[in-house]
Simulated scan of single mutants.
Amino acid sequence: MRDSVVDTDIIKAAVTLACRAPSLHNSQPWHWVFDGRVLQLFVNPERPVPATDRSGRETLISCGAALDHLRVATAATGWTANVDRFPNPNDPDHLASIDFSPSQFVTDGHRRRAEAILQRRTDRLPFAAPTDWDLFETELPASLDTDSVQLAVIGDRDRPELVAASDLTESLRLYDTPYHAEIYWWTAGLSSTEGIPPSALVSAAESDRVDIGRSFPVTPDSHRRPEVGEDHSKIVVLSTFDDTRDSVLRCGAALSAVLLDATMAGFATCTVTHLMEFPASRSVVARLAGGHLPQVLVRVGLASANGTTPPPTPRRPIGEVFEVRSKSVL
């Protein structure tokens, strides 16, 4: 039965896990409100990244990923999350209403997928080529809403053109003072609960071995994962048929699915979005990926087994992103 009463502690734990979703610069732009039956997801307007995300798409993708993480987290506890997207046309910040119904059975797969949320990292180091990629690529679409989101993998012979598009975005940002100030703010280590810590960044030497990625301030000289050499990741592209808020939010859910599938398969991942921030580079990705509107890339590969996996990035305290209100005040 939908709209069942769910213990607040169960929802709070599920939201805590959902907030492990990746977000632009680890800005965590979500706010959750629970009334005992229905959980509401809002964009937090106090978490802007305007210089980087001028269109607002990357913020929606982040929230869509958190929404899918929530679905995975509740499934592992025996509840099905029923999502109603954009329930209030008068409030564009109100992204979803979620009610819950008991599920029939919790499988080991449900539990493993929830565990993958905690295992996933944004890994900016170079990757070795993923093993058994053809099989993994064939199975990937099964986790996606392919009516809304399309998946493509950039072929190796097209990679140099994608690298050139990545370099183009960096050149277009060269004198963009607000952008560089924003990047510095989110990576300066001023907060222990948000932003990108030094442990999640790379040195200049490590960055030179990754040909597709956003440029961040570099860390002190280090040469982690030397046995990998140059990056040999596969590049997954998630695209939509339009740029409506609903489509972009659904793309965020697809991003979550790809990241968790890859984590469960033993792969490392890194989400990449800077190529979609300029029409020139976005059009290159669109052509290489099949002509739709690309929203996000994911590097997928193998990390080494010698302990160079980045530690988890920080998250804001649950009390800052989740609140319980009586139904009468919602």
Score class of each variant (00 low, 15 high):
residue 12 K to I: 00
residue 19 C to T: 12
residue 21 A to K: 05
residue 23 S to V: 04
residue 26 N to H: 05
residue 32 W to G: 00
residue 32 W to Q: 00
residue 32 W to I: 01
residue 34 F to I: 00
residue 36 G to R: 03
residue 38 V to F: 05
residue 41 L to D: 01
residue 44 N to K: 07
residue 55 S to R: 13
residue 55 S to Y: 12
residue 64 G to M: 06
residue 71 R to A: 10
residue 77 T to H: 12
residue 83 V to P: 06
residue 83 V to E: 05
residue 92 P to S: 10
residue 93 D to H: 14
residue 98 I to C: 06
residue 106 V to G: 02
residue 114 A to S: 11
residue 116 A to H: 09
residue 119 Q to M: 12
residue 128 A to I: 03
residue 129 A to R: 14
residue 142 A to S: 15
residue 145 D to F: 09
residue 148 S to A: 15
residue 150 Q to S: 14
residue 153 V to Y: 13
residue 153 V to Q: 08
residue 155 G to W: 04
residue 158 D to I: 10
residue 184 Y to N: 15
residue 187 T to S: 15
residue 196 I to N: 00
residue 196 I to Q: 02
residue 197 P to R: 05
residue 222 S to A: 15
residue 228 V to W: 00
residue 229 G to A: 10
residue 230 E to T: 13
residue 236 V to Q: 04
residue 242 D to A: 14
residue 244 T to E: 06
residue 246 D to C: 09
residue 249 L to C: 09
residue 253 A to F: 00
residue 260 L to T: 04
residue 262 A to R: 00
residue 277 E to K: 10
residue 281 S to K: 04
residue 282 R to S: 14
residue 287 R to H: 12
residue 288 L to M: 12
residue 298 V to D: 04
residue 305 A to I: 08
residue 311 P to D: 10
residue 324 V to I: 14
residue 326 S to A: 15
